[in-house]
Design a protein around this nucleic acid. Structure first.
Lengths: 196, 196, 196, 196
DNA sequence: AATGAATGAGCCTTCATTCAT
DNA sequence: AATGAATGAAGGCTCATTCAT
């Protein structure tokens, strides 16, 4: 029973279904039929709204990144203390909504796809740049510029690394210890502790 | 004209071809035909030797990990100073043979596959455990046990994170700065620098 | 805001759109959506008015033939001299409106369809019979009956052949030389030139 | 039960099947499955040998034209009298093997396709040029050059026109009267009969 | 009068896999 | 030892068509 104005509803449903299916499979090697079925519509409709599988996947990635962006913006809103901004960012990245087995799986799958698909790569680069600039918004007030840059890179790599390793475990990801690890890294860098 | 004793030759050729093709594609979504063609044999022969695609891919992963294992063992051989063992390990992981765009791509692809394939996951876990124990062989003499464990996890995550981020860049991976980042992390942790 | 009395307007628009789209594509392998889009309406409306794709295509063919019929009738109106009637008919068939790349393409496409669709075949037969009788209206006064019949067949074949060959050229069809060729044929036949 | 050396056998079988199926359908709108089925093989095999549907269709067209070319060459072999060469050519074009309902249907279908597919157009142009030059090989000794050229065009158009009209009839094509018509045209042109 | 929503059916194409040689 | 031959299964995509609004 067709109703008008269904487009946004279907698009959202299909994107959510895509995240879900991709998360379960742990890869983008999923069928349009399965995604559409999960969303309760026909595969043809998915093509109708997204043109092709690639379109749906890109929109899905875009959605995930947009969500993460919003979460980060919310977490930073009103937080002026540089150190607290850093903690807020770390916390957001390991919040339950992002650091679930499913999302992490989807995340990884998109990383792989980015190596083949230019649009995907561009999406991921945008995310990476925003994370970097968000981190710098705190670090630049706490460290000399070049040191701040290096630290931002370290934190970003640490986060990604913890994500990727989480995907290996069968157990649910442990956000708390992941956060502790990154915070510990930050503490060391900010305490001026002299290393090598 | 078939020759006897070709089996090991063909197996190696096919595995190398697989690494090459997977690295170029940036994913395991490659065809048996392409791999076989790269190895200069028919797809049927690949099946003959590996039973199925999955078998070839697993053998390929096993091969990559074994190589990495050998490299690490060689690097550690005769190095007794704990701090130097750590540096040797870090250096090995970012050696040219491992930290090329192609290998990193293949690596990532296998990570993704590990989420679906139990045998793949097992292979990656073995690698992760060995890296951990290698790191601990140095860290346990420099830090209290629990702190050493956390540091090992941090280093491992950092390495994986740097790998994954390298896959995003179009430029060739910069081993030197990657090593510097990890060394810096180690220095901080080992200097007893008080963080939070 | 739907208006009353739109039916004939829509039908005409859709038929014109069909001719245009078919002509561009050079075949009947066009989609209802494209035709409807060209006409500025939805595909559903095209179905509403024509029942199915086949209906629209038949109506389109009918329209083309009717136009050609009217053109011929107009051209013959008031022309009583048999020879001049023949020239008028030839001229009409290669008039700009009929002998354009687009129309010729559509024409050919319908010819092909006629081999599968009985209604299409019937439409084309009606056209063929009218052309024959029109030709005979001139020829019967200039030649013995059986010779007139053969000549009519020759002229008709010549016209169709020139159409079909025009479709192969990339250049715009050359009406003048096509007309000259047919006229030359008629001249020879009518001059009593002894052949075999 | 696979045997070696089947490729040429299968290719021929598939091309013959394509002609047959296209002839029956009267258009190129046939499925690979149907063609393959008619040839007694799977659709996958057709793709294996021809790459894609387009490849099979082009090879099929090429085959038809090559056959026609051979027939013409054979018919002309040893015939030196210009007028007899013309008759031989006309006869070949309406020989049973070419002027059957099926072949004519396929022929027409390819004509239509030529308007969309550049390779197809090229194939048809080659055929058209050869027919022209064959005709000229006779006509140039019987008529002034420009008149010979026009006559060649007329004959070619007449042949194509008779083909296309044959496709409309339900009855089997009447080669005899088609030949008579073209011969009559030639006789008139060659007798120097003054027309207009 | 008109359309967006929705789908089923069907086609092309790919690919891992098997088999006889 | 090695391969060409062959296929089944599956997926992406298109499109005519229907339906409720």
């Amino acid at each position: 029973m067709p109703k008008v104005g269904m487009e946004p509803v279907r698009r959202k449903a299909l994107i959510n279904a895509a995240i879900s299916v991709i998360g379960e499979h742990g890869s983008l090697d999923v069928t349009m039929s399965e995604i559409a079925g999960r969303a309760g519509v026909s595969a043809a409709l998915a093509h109708h709204y997204f043109g092709a599988k690639e379109g749906l996947l890109q929109e899905t990635m875009r959605h995930i990144l947009r969500e993460l962006g919003h979460d980060a913006a919310n977490a930073l809103r009103g937080v002026t203390d540089p150190r607290q901004r850093l903690s807020a960012l770390v916390a957001v990245n390991f919040a339950n909504s992002q650091f679930s087995t499913e999302t992490v799986s989807a995340w990884l799958a998109f990383y792989v796809e980015a190596q083949r698909s230019e649009p995907m790569r561009r999406l991921l680069l945008i995310y990476a740049r925003r994370l970097h600039s968000d981190l710098m918004s705190g670090l630049r007030h706490l460290l000399p510029l070049d040191e701040a840059t290096r630290t931002a890179e370290g934190v970003a790599a640490l986060i990604d690394g913890l994500y990727i390793r989480c995907a290996l475990r069968s157990a649910a990801p442990d956000a708390a210890s992941a956060i502790a690890l990154v915070e510990d890294y930050l503490d060391h860098k900010l305490s001026g502790g002299r290393g090598g």
